[in-house]
Amino acid sequence: MAVVAVYNSKGGVGKSTFAINLAWESAQQGHRTLLWELDEQGDSSWMLSPDDWNRQTNANQFMLGSRELLQQIHPSKFPGLSLLDGDRNIRATENFLVLFSRQQKLSKLFAELEENFDVILIDCPPGFSEANRKVLLFTHLAVVPAIPSPLAERGLTKIRKFMTLHRGHHPPILPVFSMVDRRRKMHNLALTEKPDRPVIDMASEIEQMTHRKLPIGAFAAKSRNGLAFSRLWSGIERKLLEMVVLRTKAKGDETTASEPS
């Protein structure tokens, strides 16, 4: 089973947009996919849950054991894609993750999830929290959306150091330019300096996602961002197959994103 985290220490960089679209792409390729939302905002769950779904996750119940967590996983609107919603009380989620790690139960939990899923996409909250560090210990690949700017590049260095803390090394990292406005000189300069880095533009289909409550591929697959997310997932999928954490070769385009570092 492959674990992919969508993470950045900063908020407002499009993490949930990435998590939603990558999870959908994974399911479209035939992988049994779980989108686990750790962000208290709950945007991913709100967009992908069936319209009649109104149960709320209670992370305090997770303290009782992994069975309680597994029972709160539910289907999304799309075949092959399941959801574990975020708890609005982010502290409860953080307490659960830290406690399970101290009791060495996180390994057991991920082993149990492996029985039901091929891919887990984790929508991480921002920040350098202990809970994020615990999750990243089990991550095979970290996708880092970042707005093109010098500060974003500086932030990547901090993220690498954070991920390395107490682990000795960080999982492969795939930085992706997010919310790109090609009318801005600074954004275009960043794209020129990093020509191999995947790009997701600030475009109308991003805003339409919220209105339609759909991933871009479900309504604008041939748009620039629809194709970009498809290529991005193809690159991620190839990397996971090379790492031998994704067991089955999925159907789809062989075009790949730049290699994670």
Rank of each mutant, 00 (worst) to 15 (best):
H187Q: 01
L69M: 15
M47A: 06
Y7L: 03
G65L: 02
P50K: 04
E207F: 06
T157Q: 11
L70G: 00
N188G: 02
P75L: 09
A220C: 02
A228V: 01
H74R: 12
R154G: 07
D39N: 15
G11T: 08
E205M: 03
D52F: 05
K15S: 13
W233P: 05
I20H: 14
S223L: 03
M163C: 12
H31C: 05
L35Q: 07
V144D: 07
V13Q: 12
A142E: 11
V98Y: 07
L97E: 05
K77R: 15
G65Q: 02
F162I: 01
T33C: 04
S178V: 00
T256W: 06
K10T: 13
L174A: 08
R238E: 09
S16H: 10
L121T: 13
G217W: 03
G155H: 06
A5Q: 03
M202C: 05
F138I: 00
S258I: 06
L99G: 00
K251T: 14
V98P: 04
M186A: 12
R102Q: 15
E193Q: 14
Q61N: 13
G14Q: 04
M202G: 01
T255Y: 08
W24G: 10
S129G: 10
R154V: 10
V13C: 13
D87F: 06
A257G: 09
F62D: 00
K158S: 13
T255R: 15
F78D: 05
P150I: 09
F229S: 12
R197L: 04
S9I: 02
P50D: 07
E153V: 12
V199I: 13
F219W: 04
D51N: 10
R184F: 00
K15P: 08
F110P: 06
N95I: 14
Q56C: 03
V119A: 00
V6T: 09
V135P: 04
G80I: 09
D51R: 14
F162W: 04
T256G: 00
A146T: 14
